[in-house]
């Protein structure tokens, strides 16, 4: 049981990473990652909506008739999205302005409806919570990572701290729309490559272990 809960949590961070492996929720990933802090802000907003709506959906999953499942999910998700929209406007106006249109658009982010459909409506609240938290943290690190790359390349800073000497020419293209596509494309490619290498290693160890056993036998 313990290990399965761990797996529920960890799958969102790597194996089933929503953005980099499942390739869903790409719009905000491309749009708001002009700086690491924006990616982080967006990621945290997604965690809030994802965790709250998953838990609520899981709690009421037995009362919702199957035919009106989707409209109910959408309404619940829209409620939490509007709440985070208002909270950001009140307490983090600067971040709210940067994220702009993409906060209300969390509602149509396939990650959230996807988790509700695939997991929360079939599992008890505790597991739905763990699953949502894992997926949300996956989204957050993905967005922050891509935001950091674009910020370093485009402005020479990360979280506003100058790390590349100011005399070095910054590549503005990374802050513009094409740079978003390039960065995400390369990060997805790199992630695939790492997984290929890991897979090959795993096979090799299995094979050498088998070979070792054969020799001993």
């Amino acid at each position: 049981m313990q290990t399965s809960i761990n797996r529920e949590f960890l799958k969102g961070l790597w194996d089933e990473h929503p953005i980099l492996r499942l390739l869903i929720g790409m719009c905000p990933t491309l749009a708001v990652t002009t700086a690491a802090v924006n990616g982080l802000g967006m990621g945290l907003s997604v965690i809030f909506v994802l965790v709250c709506s998953s838990v609520i959906i899981s709690l009421i999953r037995n009362f919702i008739p199957n035919q009106v499942r989707i409209p109910c999910f959408i309404m619940i998700i829209a409620t939490f999205t509007t709440i985070i929209d208002m909270v950001l406007a009140a307490y983090f106006p600067a971040l709210h302005e940067v994220l702009g249109l993409f906060i209300p658009l969390i509602v149509v982010n396939c990650i959230i409806l996807g988790r509700a459909e695939a997991f929360a409506c079939k599992n008890p609240p505790a597991r739905a919570f763990i699953d949502a938290l894992g997926m949300g943290l996956g989204v957050t690190w993905g967005l922050t990572f891509i935001g950091a790359i674009r910020e370093i390349m485009g402005m020479g800073t990360v979280f506003g701290l100058q790390i590349v000497p100011e005399t070095a020419t910054s590549w503005i293209i990374f802050l513009l729309p094409p740079g978003a596509f390039f960065t995400l494309g390369i990060v997805v490619g790199a992630m695939n490559h790492i997984n290929h290498v890991m897979e090959r290693r795993r096979q090799q160890t299995v094979r050498s272990a088998a070979a070792g056993q054969a020799v001993q036998g």
């Binding site: 009362f63 009106v68 409620t79």
Partner: peptide, 17 residues
């Protein structure tokens, strides 16, 4: 039952908002 559930969810959401 469908109508009741939908109305209930909508009303709750609206109230919270």
């Amino acid at each position: 039952r469908l109508v009741i559930v939908l109305t209930l969810v909508a009303a709750l959401s609206g109230g919270i908002l």
